[in-house]
Design a protein around this nucleic acid. Structure first.
Lengths: 336, 336
DNA sequence: AGCCTCGCTGCAAACGTTTCCGGAATTTGT
DNA sequence: ACAAATTCCGGAAACGTTTGCAGCGAGGCT
């Protein structure tokens, strides 16, 4: 059915090896024959079978992206950055949704291994046991993580400066005069969010008049924000500012607060983290910490590509992106 | 390095063909030997090389999803549905972002072909020329489209009942007593949106007192909504209701209208289409037409799987999902 | 003029599977 | 007990490439 390299060889009167060399731009083939061969190949509409090629070369020219859920705006943005970079390099990207389920994550690892993907881009290995992590790193395929909680030295990482972001938020809220402050964050041991919390409380503690925020853990999505905000109002009705660990959580808290009759930002200031597109759309427009999501995805595959380039993965690489505060209308000075 | 089927064969004292049969659950191998072989395979942690398998079977157990942009919430949701279905069937999904660029779309087609993907899930072929469409369908791989504008009989399709959705919107606005109505839609010849418009104007025309809406074309995103709304206010300041062809466009129009001092829904009612998660989050919560995005993705790969099952693609399949109106707070009765 | 080198090409092995085919061993039928 | 049918297994080809090796002719060097 499909036209193979043999057809091209027969049609152009040379050996398949010559065809291969001619088409792959290798040295050692006469200009004339090369020209002739490519002409024939074009005429026959020859398309090399990459599966066969992969079998002998050992590379599949495929990368994988394992995230918890592509519907999460953050990951969608990362995915786009990653895919663009992969496309430019002639690689393609298989998408996996793990829901942070350890079992699913390991199954993906195995399956991707069997497919001989050249590299894996992974959300996080925080939910995995030490043994599972070793199993993953022992797969022999370079892995870059989107946070840096993992044991250094084994996985590469690329992420935003979450800790600095948390500090930025703290500074801003402090500057506005807030003293009763809450931080609503994701599950315990969530890599990136843990760092945000760390930077946040550290900076608050380092203030001239230190403040200790109330800290609540919950789900990292809209509903989680709603629930935590309700809990917060019940337990600490006097807080005047809340920093949510993601924009989606911030949207949820805003919703819950407004439904309870609080005005944003007059009664309580709310900050997010991520700066997803909707942060500027929603009302009130959300003050948040921007992290370069697209660039993170892009950088991750660049690292991956470099790693597959030099065969046995040498030292892992690490890259961290700066974050910045983007001020909108969800925060204001504490009323005197 | 990696353990192959030969290692398993040697270690368990049988031929590779027997190992293959034992592991793949084929008939014709004694229960005892099978048991022994799988035990050895497990001990050696044997993982079959799917590339090699793919070479001989001709199937890669890989599907592809090509959408314009995964950051579009609609596609993210579709992608998740598709990936879940693929995962269950042991397939994986490669992600492609076409930006609706014809050249990029064709390059993806070629590349996916070379990788021998078993099926392709594609956003739309509306931007492709007739010749390009034929080229795609001639690739020999089943393709299912996410709209039904394509020449029937060649591609399979799955989509929501866009036309009915448009009609639903019209009915609702009519019921609320609106007479000055606008429809803000995407580019001309955008498959799904064209149908929405069709259903919308048809239903308005069929009313007891027919109304002819003003129709504006623009970009299908937030910014497009903003621009069209501004244009609308300049040209037709008297409209009391606008139906945007997507939620993102609706968000944009709401933003533009509010910035111009119009109140939603008191001064003008706004409807969307899609019912993305944020439709309920935003203020005011958006009245919109719900379409089952996750299920669409899911159904699409189910069709694909069926198609690859029966070798030469028989007749293409078509599937259409019902839509429904979800009423929130962005619309109200026209003031008397 | 002979030898070496070098550029070009063909041959064949290899990558790791699946699967067709045939043979041996075992069971069934009469 | 013998032919026939059946079950189980090994040999080998095939899938479509890449690539190491060797051959061969031509040209440059001494």
């Amino acid at each position: 059915m499909a036209v193979t390299i043999k057809d091209v060889a027969r049609e152009s009167g040379v050996n398949v090896s010559t065809v291969s060399r001619a088409l792959n731009g290798e040295y050692g083939v006469h200009a004339d024959t090369r020209e002739h061969v490519v002409a024939v190949a074009q005429r026959l509409k020859y398309r090399p079978n990459r599966v066969a090629r992969g079998l002998v070369t050992g590379r599949s020219h495929t990368l994988a992206l394992v995230v918890s859920d592509i519907r999460n705006l953050f990951f969608a943005e990362v995915a786009r950055g990653a895919e663009d970079a992969a496309y430019r390099a002639g690689y393609d990207l298989v998408l996996c949704n793990s829901d942070l389920d350890p079992e699913k994550q390991m199954r993906y690892g195995q399956s991707l291994m069997e497919k001989r993907v050249d590299g894996i881009l992974m959300n996080s290995v925080a939910v995995l046991s030490k043994k599972q992590q070793e199993q993953l790193s022992g797969l022999g395929v370079p892995i870059v993580l989107l946070n840096r909680t993992a044991p250094r030295g084994v996985f590469s990482t690329v992420c935003a400066d979450n800790e600095a972001g948390g500090a930025l938020a703290a500074e801003y809220l402090l500057k506005l005069g807030h003293r009763k402050i809450a931080h609503l964050t994701g599950p315990r041991h969530h890599g990136n969010m843990t760092e945000r919390a760390k930077g946040f409380v550290a900076r608050l503690a380092a203030a001239r008049r230190p403040v200790r925020p109330v800290l609540l853990h919950g789900k990292n999505n809209f509903q989680g924000g709603v629930e935590l905000a309700q809990k917060l109002m019940a337990q600490h009705p006097d807080v005047t500012a809340v920093f949510a660990a993601s924009d989606m959580m911030a949207f949820g808290t805003i919703r819950a607060l407004m439904e309870a009759g609080r005005r944003i930002p007059e009664d309580v200031s709310v900050m997010g983290f991520d700066n997803v597109e909707l942060a500027s759309i929603v009302h009130p427009p959300l003050t948040t910490i921007h992290q370069p999501k697209y660039e993170i995805g892009q950088a991750a595959v660049e690292i991956l590509l470099r790693l597959v380039g030099r065969g046995e993965h040498q030292g892992p690489e690490h890259r961290m992106f700066a974050v910045e505060l983007v001020e909108r209308q969800s925060c204001m000075e504490r009323k005197a």
